[in-house]
């Protein structure tokens, strides 16, 4: 497969995942703000949310929900707003139209046209929730269509690689932000009502509340919540799950390209995978949640760089047949 095509598939997937993640976060955020305590001012919550999404916070701050939502959903200047992420995903897909199935293109192009057709005021005046729901459903539909209409070969694995890496980064980043405010203690406690809603929000950001309840019941304990989001082996929005997916996608890509397993990208992915398989929540607390999660984000970036060096931007001399 052409290196450029791998690059486009990878970024198509990352941008769509980003759009979905952003839509989910804002949707949950708007919903929770109805219940959450007033301890933390709404403007500050918005500021934190924008920062975790790598969106610029205006110097004058966020005035209200309207203002915050507008930036996240429709800021034309910033690549991470929902509109721009969907556009970037679609633009990447457009460059490799002959590599994805017609059904995939149809879905992504339809999503793009729908998003481009709407104005922010029309969304706000109707039901913002429906707009975010449409983005999420659109992205899920695209993934489902991808799984059932595209050959599960190298290109598909680059899509998986992009999606899992983007998601791992987003989870690590979001957890890092939240755990700086809601500190974890050595011993397990039951949170106060105010804090309860914060932990509930954290789970909901990752659509993890129901999954968590099935394992631990609705009894929310901070250590369990963190452990669940970091180390649960079966939940698709846990960090460990994403890294497993990333590692196996990389392995399949290597098989397809006859690449030696000992390369740097595999060492790095394997190292991260084993850390997440064997670390416990106590290890995280001992090392400090912030350094631990920062380190995971750094490792993800290194995996990205190594994969690019291996498959996409390699020097010519090293690759002559």
């Amino acid at each position: 497969m052409l290196s450029r095509v791998a690059d486009n598939l990878y970024w198509m997937s990352r941008y769509l995942e980003r759009a979905e993640h952003t839509a989910r976060l804002v949707d949950v955020h708007l919903n929770l703000s109805l219940d959450q305590s007033r301890k933390m001012p709404a403007a500050l919550r918005w500021q934190r949310l924008l920062e975790t999404l790598h969106l610029p916070v205006p110097e004058t701050g966020i005035r209200d929900d309207y203002h915050g939502t507008q930036i996240v959903a429709f800021d034309a200047k910033h690549p991470n707003s929902i509109v721009n992420a969907v556009t970037a995903a679609r633009e990447n897909a457009r460059q490799v139209r002959e590599k994805i199935s017609s059904e995939m293109w149809l879905q992504l192009n339809t999503l793009y046209l729908d998003v481009r057709r709407t104005t922010f005021d029309s969304i706000w005046n109707q039901q913002p929730h429906e707009f975010f729901q449409a983005i999420k459903t659109g992205a899920h539909l695209f993934q489902g269509i991808t799984d059932s209409t595209m050959a599960h070969d190298e290109g598909w694995y680059f899509i998986q690689f992009g999606r899992s890496l983007e998601r791992a980064l987003a989870i690590a980043n979001m957890l890092d932000d939240q755990l700086r405010v809601l500190e974890l203690s050595e011993r397990e406690q039951t949170p106060e009502t105010d804090d309860y809603f914060e932990w509930l929000g954290l789970l909901k950001f990752f659509t993890a509340f129901e999954a968590y309840c099935k394992v631990y019941t609705a009894d929310l304990r901070p250590r369990r919540v963190a452990e669940f989001l970091l180390f649960n082996p079966t939940f698709p929005h846990s960090l460990r799950f994403c890294v497993e997916m990333m590692t196996s996608a990389l392995q399949s890509i290597s098989e397809a390209t006859n690449m030696s397993r000992n390369s740097r990208v595999h060492r790095q992915a394997g190292r991260l995978r084993s850390a997440l398989s064997f670390d416990s929540i106590d290890d995280v607390i001992t090392r400090g949640t912030h350094p631990y999660l920062q380190d995971i984000q750094r490792q993800c970036m290194q995996i990205h760089d190594a994969a690019y060096e291996n498959f996409i931007t390699y020097p010519v001399e090293s690759a002559l047949p």
Partner: peptide, 30 residues
Amino acid sequence: ARQMGIELVEGRDLLVHQNVVYMRTTAGLR
């Protein structure tokens, strides 16, 4: 390209080394 089942390349995907044309793929030059 799709109808024929062959690669669609841009100039930047190709390079010439000793008068032979190669394309840059994930599995090396072809």
